[in-house]
């Protein structure tokens, strides 16, 4: 799949933002006043920034408002609805904590659960795609949860939880990469099932429909850069997991080191999310004899 920057930014940043919101909603850390303002500002900037980025790849962004209408059938629509509801409910809690020194915990818990629900709906946009076997697995929502919770814990200064979650995240991510290698073959899709010509022998594309590229090839048969996938995986695990865990466990705690840990985690997250798209193979590639 084409790793569009807008979609990478959207899933990465909004995941982090809603992850941080979940921690804040649960009262971890139990901040108030200016300190709370800073935390909530970061959470909203990430979540809203990600959501705004997601509109950049739309052909007709002026109609984006209609995307809230089909929540009964569409995961993308549910994601939009839940994101807005989460932002509003957490806002109630944030106003209490920042300005009134009140901790309306019910709003906090509700907002936290809604934030995690938003992360789940985001993951299901991808996990529901039977056409992309690498995504079509329960590991996709698990991973999105772990990215949100681990990144959120790091941003929320929950050192102990962050270390644990980062280790779990890296382990599950490696597992997902390994299982993903054969996912296309396990799903059983071949050029023979795509064309139904398998009884005539081995099938190959003799001539493509047009001499040039088309939307399908640009959007769903992205092959560039896959040869570096292995190195990029190592880089992703190093930056998003090993560096932050090392900083949190070995070095003295202060704001500068925490910032380095967060930036390193985010860099690794972007690399890993780029791979999430670039390595995902869509079955339509079979009709073009490439994946």
């Amino acid at each position: 799949m084409h790793p569009a920057p807008s979609v990478i930014i959207f899933t990465a940043l909004s995941g982090l933002g809603f992850g941080l919101m979940a921690w804040l909603g649960f009262g971890l850390p139990a901040v108030s006043g200016w300190s709370a303002f800073t935390f909530f500002f970061v959470a909203y900037a990430l979540a809203v920034g990600g959501l705004v980025a997601s509109t950049f790849h739309l052909g007709n962004p002026k109609r984006a408002i209609k995307a809230f209408s089909q929540w009964r059938s569409s995961w993308l629509s549910r994601e939009g609805v839940l994101a807005i509801v989460s932002l509003l409910v957490i806002a109630v809690y944030a106003i209490g904590v920042i300005f009134l020194n009140q901790r309306w915990q019910i709003a906090g818990w509700a907002g936290a659960l809604l934030s995690l629900g938003t992360v789940f709906t985001t993951s299901m946009i991808y996990a529901q795609m039977k056409t992309v076997p690498r995504w079509n697995t329960p590991l996709t929502p698990v991973l999105f949860f772990l990215y949100a919770l681990a990144g959120g814990a790091l941003l929320a200064g929950q050192t102990g939880a962050a270390i644990m979650l980062l280790i779990v995240l890296c382990s599950v991510q490696v597992l997902a990469w390994v299982l993903g290698e054969n996912s296309f073959a396990r799903a059983g899709h071949t050029i023979e099932t795509a064309t139904g010509l398998g009884n005539l022998g081995r099938v190959r594309l003799l001539e493509s429909p047009h001499s040039g590229p088309n939307y399908l090839l640009k959007e769903m048969v992205y092959i560039v850069g896959r040869k570096h996938a292995h190195k990029l995986r190592v880089i992703a695990i190093f930056l998003m997991g090993l560096v932050p865990v090392a900083i949190l466990t070995l070095l003295p705690t202060n704001h500068y080191m925490a910032a380095i840990a967060v930036l390193s985690h985010m860099a690794g997250l972007f690399v890993s999310r780029w791979l999430f798209f670039a390595q995902a193979e869509h079955v339509v590639g079979l009709y073009y004899d490439k994946r």
Partner: peptide
Amino acid sequence: CMGCGLCAWACPYGAREMDVAEG
């Protein structure tokens, strides 16, 4: 249609194509 392209992702057959000019 807001041109998000998700339906084209969901189609196994490549039956849907986004029009670049119209979005």
